[in-house]
Design a protein around this nucleic acid. Sequence first.
DNA 1: CGGAGAGTTGAAACC
DNA 2: CGGTTTCAACTCTCC
Length: 671
Amino acid sequence: MQRKRLALYSRFLMAYTCCLTCSRAPERVIYWFRTDLRLHDSPALKAALDLKPDVLYPIWCWDSHYVYRARVGNNRWQFLLDCMDDVSKSLTNLNGKSKLLVLREPAVTLLPKLLKAWKITHLVFEKDTDSYGRDRDSEIISNAKKAGVEVVTKYGRTLWDSDDLVKANGGKPTMSITQLQHAGEKVGAIPLPVATPVTLPDLGGLQLDFAQNQPDGTPDMNAKYRDGEEASYSAGIAGPNNDFAVPTLKELGLKPATTHIRGGENIILPRLEQILSDEDYTGTFEKPKTSPAAFEPQSTFLTSPYLHLGALSCRYFYHRVGEILEKRRKAKQPVSGPPVSLHGQLLFRDMYFAAQAALGWSFGQTYNNSAIRFIPWHLPSKVDVNTKLITGEYEIDDERKEKEFQRWASGKTGFPWIDAIMRQLRHEGWIHHLARHAVACFLTRGGCYISWERGAEVFEELLVDHEAACNIGNWQWLSCTAFYSQFYRCYSPVAFGKKWDDNGDFIRRYVPELKDLPKKYIYEPHKAPLQDQKRAGVSITGDGEETEMDGVAVYPKPMFDFNTQRDICLQGMKKAYQVKLHGNSPQVLDGTWKSIFEDTGAGPTEGEKGGPGGTLGFGKAEEEDADEGSATPKKTTQGTSQPTPRSTRGHKREHSQGTLDGVFTKKRAKD
DNA sequence: CGGAGAGTTGAAACC
DNA sequence: CGGTTTCAACTCTCC
């Protein structure tokens, strides 16, 4: 009783002393940073400061989902930590007593305890329309409200609020850039940037009178990037020095990053300024005219990773470019327009975000996705037919295809243009947009005929700019399953590269074993006579297993005849387009699609003999209450009982639309 | 100078 | 924001 009175009195005193001009209670605000790691043009951060808080806690919830269960290579980890460090320094610059407080516990379990411990009045964060983000945030919001904490969210992640776009598009996913533009017109003008804060309230007390929930570290999908123990949770909520510092790669047990791309608002803003100062380049930018083979420097802005983590505001970028366009129009200088211009690129991003916002979890998969064409790809995702969600595993319907997939992912296909791109991706975490086209087409409709979902997973792991909506959307585009349909426009692994880089400098840089090969053979080294191979110090042989033989570097032979494979793919695509099934067609949902595609005539599909095309648990397996160990239906044959190197057994794939935080498991898909 | 033949270019059709 | 083939139209060269 005594204590309570004291608390009341001190609360009164605080109110009195904190705010002499008004009689309101002290505002104790948490600003929860997520994919908005910046201070400039942040509507949500502005909303937090507009509350005129007495204390402001800028926090980051350290998420097990991101640490263990999303595919995040060490390059993206480095980039994320860079951005966090950068924001923390910016906060300290505004107020020497403030910084980004990293709390080593996922938001869902942490926030309810934290709101209480720090007597929080308001929780403020940027709205997220990723499916995972929605699930997580709705739980956070409902818990906060129950605890009497006011929740404030603002939207600043895309040009328009994705939910508004969906509404303006009749509740349907935006499947073309025209739809997106019309929806955008209905929603209204793209909000102008808000001011960057110049002051920042102090932190309040940092007492942590509650226990830490240490999340389950298994399965650890990023184990292959670790050379030490993952220890980011074991030091407690405030970290090893009890100072809420941003963790290091070392603490995560991760190997050092190989990329030279570093994160942070304070890196991208000056660089953006520099690029924008070239008004001819900015004003006439046309994406298709920029070279995928250019490196050091690349031919485009390289803003995507910064946009993803919010280190650069897309609206700020949009309006800055708009000013330049306006100026040029007045001066009657040439300007480029959507879809090829810079504005066009940002519109595509909004299109993918809004499509995802409309479709939810199903956007990230073929099964039960109403907006996607069904194509009987090899290596399809396994599906839990009860939840209608993919499990994170995939069906190996053909061992040769699995081998091709691994060779593609590791840059050992024997097609130097493809391999150079995949090696650049692995090393730098970034490749040019058209390079993504080339390797994505190659893996799916224009080469291997392997599911786009396999490719999307590899990109998710390796790209520093991985953004679920854009990655998924672009893979659907390139595989001609959604957004785009001209499947006969097929990229050649030889001709397309040559068009941009006849000398093969890009290949020489990323596939160094070929660097001394004559220009004549650089795109097709297997055609080089043995004498030329010898002179160049490389032997073109094998299937990628060997990297060296008798002291001589080895580069593999092409893993198939491209033209033959291209014809097979075209036939398969033509058939699939005639059949006209979609991800949510009854025949896809129940697995009877297999009777529609013949073993031979349907191109590459294995038909009845192959995997069920992503229907794990379909049919008999359920009735026969299949033993836990192998939940694979009997009708699937070869390879399916073996765990695949890239998949995790028995666990849902939770990552593909994940944001950076949370401990959620997927919920049942909406029907 | 005309015309044959080789070489080049670009649009169109097809995959 | 595809590649390849084809074919007409054109240029160039040579006698």
